[in-house]
């Protein structure tokens, strides 16, 4: 680990100002990913701006939905009564992630900012365009069992590791960020990026911007939800594939539906085409299967992850089936 300086800030303004002063500074929230990256020598900030004292951890009901502060801990969100009542999919996704110890430390904003678990990114002796642009992609032609089947580029095939973000993208969340030029809002689906030629950029946050909160608009989808995470062990493993499904079903017909996947792309992967196709149709396994197949049209596998072409649609179907079967 390299030497760094540390400053604790207590207001948004001082946080943003601290970042503007030092180009190598980074925000520190729960630290569950950043500290690991610093230990591995992947990320070498010279200054850590600790934002844990900022008043951004509240979860409150607004006129149009729930507002979750960026510093709310994953556990606090997962166990929050309003979240469980209005957006059970979010609670389910959070509980599928990491371990209780990590969820007790990790924040909503930090979860969004966590970096890929691609091993080539972590091992500084290996090539990785995300860590070291231009050095090549180690995963292409290498160990790519965990990697993307959607939206990858010839520069990077890494996936975003978050479960929480899969639920948030499905639920049409809006991210509020603040920077030197004031606040702006980013639809959740536009927050993370596909790798393209610049895989070093995980998301569309500008340098120095601070995530303030995530707003989730109310919907009618809380009765039938399910987050299914398929992984190599029963807990504390990243998704091979995960699927989040939320539906409104009336008289056996799907009146509204949200569907997203994790472990398949550089960003949480919303399945809008499948949603549109399902809307108005009977909630049957056959229709779920067709929607899943539709979702796979653009899928492209590597040598090590071809199984995802089977697993991904199966996971979508299982998530939809389980969601539909909820009382």
């Amino acid at each position: 680990m390299n030497q760094f300086s540390y400053v604790r800030v207590t207001s948004k303004e001082s946080a943003i100002a601290a970042m503007a002063k030092d180009k190598t500074a980074m925000f520190l929230a729960g630290g569950t990913n950043l500290v690991d990256l610093m230990k591995s020598g992947v990320t070498n900030p010279e200054r850590l701006v600790d934002i844990n004292k900022l008043p951004l951890a509240t979860i409150e009901e607004t006129k149009t939905g729930l507002r979750i502060g960026a510093l709310a801990k994953n556990t606090a969100v997962a166990e929050n009564a309003l979240v469980i009542k209005h957006f059970p999919l979010l609670s389910q996704a959070l509980k599928a992630g990491a371990s209780p110890q990590l969820r007790n430390m990790a924040t909503v904003g930090g979860n969004m900012m966590q970096r890929t678990r691609c091993h080539y990114f972590y091992d500084t002796a290996m090539p990785c365009n995300k860590r070291n642009p231009g050095s090549g992609c180690g995963a292409i032609g290498g160990f790519n069992r965990m990697h993307a089947i959607f939206g990858a580029s010839d520069k990077c095939i890494a996936v975003h590791p978050s479960d929480m973000c899969v639920a948030l993208v499905a639920l049409d969340a809006i991210v509020t960020v603040a920077g030197p030029k004031g606040e702006r809002k980013i639809p959740f689906g536009d927050f993370h990026r596909l790798p393209g030629d610049t895989p070093q950029q995980d998301n569309n946050l500008q340098r120095g911007e601070l995530i303030i909160a995530v707003d989730i608009p109310f919907n009618q989808l809380s009765a039938n939800t399910h987050y299914l995470k398929v992984r190599d062990r029963a807990s504390y493993a990243f998704a091979l594939v995960s699927a989040g499904a939320a539906m409104q079903i009336k008289g056996g017909n799907i009146t509204d539906v949200r569907l997203a996947m994790g472990g398949v792309a550089h960003k949480p992967w919303r399945l809008k085409e499948a949603e549109a196709w399902l809307k108005g149709k009977p909630a049957t396994e056959e229709n779920f299967r067709k929607a899943a197949e539709l979702s796979m049209a653009q899928a492209k596998s590597q040598e090590g992850n071809a199984f995802k072409l089977t697993l991904a649609p199966n996971t979508i179907v299982e998530a939809l089936k389980t969601a539909a079967a909820q009382a």
């Binding site: 678990r117 290498g142 160990f143 062990r233 504390y236």
Partner: peptide, 29 residues
């Protein structure tokens, strides 16, 4: 069911040399 040390033979290096990616069973298993 879970344990495997994976080596990228192009480099001769492990690609899962930590307890997050080398899966020893957890209580839930």
């Amino acid at each position: 069911l879970t344990e495997e040390g994976v080596i990228d033979h192009r480099f001769g290096r492990f690609v899962n040399n930590n307890l997050a990616d080398y899966h020893v069973p957890v209580s839930a298993d």
